[in-house]
Design a protein around this nucleic acid. Structure first.
Lengths: 354, 354
DNA sequence: TTGTAAGCGTTATCAT
DNA sequence: ATGATAACGCTTACAA
């Protein structure tokens, strides 16, 4: 039924009709090997031959079959992004960073969300790694705080980079930010405005991301000789709703805090919401600082003072690190792996009234 | 030097040490073919043999090499998500939908953002399709409105599904929502509240997504015999900033609109911002309706009345459609391909004062 | 520098 | 129902 011209020297892929390396070799009168060298930019081949082959490739519209290359090279052209983030903007910024790094390369980004709480977490990651065998993976916080995930990548021979706060494991597999110091700086700013009763909304207990930010909070208060009253530190899970609940707990205290630091912007927006429900004006009655500098920080009212977390840059650096191993990032300059965050002052902070 | 290990099949992949199908075949005393059948759930093989092979697979921790499968099957296990959306939440919701569809299958999602405005747009998409050869792609709006992209997929033999408003091309490659009718419904709601001077913030001129939503706006006004004054229809590009600018233009008119429909939530939030800059209260002085029902709609103040756009469901349906072709979605029920949107009433709408 | 031939780990064809 | 054996399209020793 299929009228394929089989007698003639295979013109194109049998199924798709796309030209193969054999077609290029035949038409340009060289061997597959030579074509392969042209494709892979081997430096040691005759200029004339190269041009002729390139011409045929152009004429034919030949593109090497990525599946075949992957099999022969024992690697594919995929960089995975594994995350468990409740925060949409964080994920998207990270994706942007990874994609910037992959720009111009043959690599593509495959995204894999997982559920940190699930008992099958490790199995889920293993399934992904074994069934896709990405060339490497970037692990986002807060998941990156899970030691087992990094260990698993190592066991399965998949290269990986964890993004997270400093002091977290092997630097070879880390891209870090100075969260502890950044939070300390933000809290110092509140103290400088005259605040003494400062509340904290942390991330989920036990995660390094949350821990490091809490430590920064404590550092700043300790420096100023301020003791945190009971109940001034409360937990959220990085969502708006948890921020509302945490803010409500904090504002129900007596005396209540005059300033609150929330460990991400989304929870900070929740705190703002809780304040409004209690008819408290921000920043007159309450100062609020968030963390991330996500777009929403500038969209709400009042615009949120926050710590800019360079997650796009970090994700880009992480992906470049993965590419660096195989010369894919020849001319790209290796970036530093410690990123600094800085305070962005907007309108949600003022001195306390009392 | 080459110890022709053909009679004594090498134990594991030469490089990675991972067990191969040969190891499984040897250890279970059957041929590769049989193992392959077990893997691919062929119905016609002896129950006993199957169990024995499965046992060996389990013991060895054997996982088929996806690259080799991809080459032999002439397809891979990747579903692409191509988009050019300025709106973070839309992208993330779409990703979620696609992932829900891929859940439990061997497929992974590879995300590919492009720049709609770029002159190299088509070349960028072509590069992605040719260099990754995904099994299929989902194209998000507003990019899905670009006929050339769908056509390109067809030419390259890559299956695709476009997500967008109804009446857009071949239904076989479409997952549609009734945007025109949904917007008309929202505007009717404003009219029912007594509004007669209603402004519209559209999306970029020429995109089907924007056009259909504008038509719905016009439908509702025409039904009520209302003529749109000059300047009451203004353009944005789906970003917050463009919403602020559009809102500012609208509110600078005299008489100004008493209600504004914005073609997405982010621009609606921009309109809210513009109103606040002019000391107008929402909804007392101005009613606002958005489109999407993105999370931010419930987070801002006042909570935004908006049209819920079932983008997660649509994306899931789109991906399932892609999988349906090859029996990957055997038991999953084919969903309808026309999705209806509905008005979510919150607090940004009231009757006009005058 | 270039050609020849042997993999890479699967699936598919054709016997049995 | 199962076993040899040939693809699949590319890379890479080894030779020339």
């Amino acid at each position: 039924v299929v009228g394929k011209a089989e007698q003639e020297p295979a013109a194109g892929d049998r199924r798709t009709g796309k030209p193969t390396i054999n077609d290029v070799a035949r038409l340009s009168g060289v061997s597959k090997k030579t074509v392969s060298q042209v494709i892979n930019r081997s430096p040691l081949l005759n200029g004339g031959t190269r041009e002729r082959v390139l011409g045929v490739i152009r004429d034919l519209g030949y593109v090497p079959n990525p599946q075949a290359r992957a099999l022969a090279l024992r690697t594919n052209f995929l960089i995975g992004l594994i995350h468990d983030s409740p925060n949409a903007q964080t994920v998207l910024s990270a994706q942007q960073g990874v994609l910037e790094a992959l720009q111009g390369s043959d690599y593509a980004m495959v995204v894999r969300p997982v559920d940190r709480g699930s008992p099958t977490l490790i199995d889920d990651v293993r399934w992904f790694l074994e069934h896709q065998r990405p060339h490497g993976v970037v692990i986002l916080p807060p998941l990156s705080g899970n030691e087992a995930v990094g260990r698993l990548c190592g066991e399965l021979g998949c290269s990986y980079v964890r993004m997270g706060s400093a002091e977290l494991g092997d630097p070879d597999h880390m891209i870090a930010s100075d969260d502890r110091e950044a939070v300390a700086g933000a809290v110092r700013h509140l103290i400088a405005q005259g605040h003494r009763r400062i509340g904290l909304v942390t991330g989920p207990h036990g995660l390094p991301l949350a821990t490091h930010r809490r430590l920064g909070f404590e550092d700043a208060l300790a420096e100023a000789g301020i003791t945190v009253p009971d109940g001034f530190v409360t937990e959220g899970n990085y969502t708006f709703e948890s921020g509302v609940a945490a803010g409500d707990r904090l504002l129900g205290l007596s005396p209540r805090p005059t300033a609150i630091f929330a460990s991400n912007d989304e929870m900070a927006v929740g705190v703002l919401h809780a304040a409004r429900m209690r008819d408290l004006d921000v920043p007159e009655d309450l100062s609020v600082i968030g963390f991330d500098d996500s777009p929403i920080a500038g969209l709400i009212w009042p615009p949120l003072t926050t710590v800019r977390w360079p997650i796009v840059d970090m994700a880009r650096a992480a992906a470049l690190k993965l590419l660096a191993g195989d010369g894919g990032a020849d001319e790209k300059i290796a970036e530093s792996s410690l990123f600094v965050s800085k305070l962005i002052e907007r309108a949600s902070v003022a001195g306390p009234k009392d």
